[in-house]
Computed example of a mutant assay.
Amino acid sequence: MAKTTGFTLVELMIVVGIVAIMALLAFPSFSQQIMQDRVVTTANQLNSVYKYARSEAVKRDRDIKLVVSGAKWQVKAPVDGVETVLKEFVIQHQGISVGLVDRTVWASGEISAASEILIQDDNHKTVDYYLCILKSGQNWLAEKTAACA
């Protein structure tokens, strides 16, 4: 008599059931991580646009404006006498809000006024961030709980 190897249907169904239960337990954590990544990505993009504006001001030896236009933060500079948008920050994900403000980055790299720009979403379980900008132009990202102290 030949010996057969393999899995029975019952064994296969038990394994599939265990995998399904594990997936259900992991899903809330996974979706929470996706929401947190969206906040962090938005904060990093905002930080990048600010750093770009500061470097352009120093490089061009001209004042650069950061202008709120709807939900966008536009980096504007005069090019051949015409006010031109060099770069802009746009919120990529729904549910995330950013407290944008108009500012001017001077040719020295300093900024017209210190700022605490809040990046948050509508989920209380995620960590929100501030883009902290000193009048000297230096900046960093800080968790909302730590603020810009």
Rank of each mutant, 00 (worst) to 15 (best):
M1H: 09
M1Y: 10
A2D: 08
T5Q: 10
G6I: 00
T8N: 12
L9H: 06
L9T: 13
E11K: 02
E11Q: 04
L12K: 00
L12D: 00
V15H: 03
G17S: 13
V19A: 13
A23V: 12
L24R: 00
L24N: 05
L25I: 11
S29D: 14
F30E: 05
S31L: 15
Q32C: 06
Q32Y: 12
Q32D: 15
Q33C: 11
Q33L: 12
Q36A: 04
Q36W: 02
V39N: 00
V40F: 06
T41K: 01
A43R: 02
N44L: 13
N47C: 03
N47G: 03
S48W: 02
V49M: 09
V49D: 06
Y50N: 04
K51W: 12
K51H: 14
Y52W: 09
E56S: 10
E56G: 09
A57D: 11
V58F: 04
R60F: 08
R60S: 07
D63G: 06
I64Y: 09
I64F: 12
K65A: 14
V67G: 06
G70W: 00
K72Q: 13
W73T: 03
W73A: 07
Q74P: 01
K76Y: 01
A77M: 12
A77E: 13
P78R: 14
D80L: 15
D80H: 15
V82M: 04
E83H: 06
K87P: 00
E88N: 12
V90N: 09
V90A: 12
H93M: 04
Q94F: 05
G95D: 00
S97Q: 09
L100A: 06
L100R: 02
V101P: 04
V101G: 10
D102L: 03
T104F: 02
V105C: 07
A107V: 03
A107E: 12
S108N: 15
G109F: 03
I111V: 14
I111K: 11
I111Q: 07
A113T: 04
E116C: 11
I117G: 04
D122W: 08
D122E: 09
T126G: 00
V127G: 12
Y129W: 12
Y129G: 02
Y129Q: 07
L131R: 04
C132E: 01
L134P: 00
G137F: 09
N139M: 08
W140F: 14
L141C: 07
A142K: 11
T145D: 07
T145A: 10
A146Q: 03
C148N: 02
A149I: 04
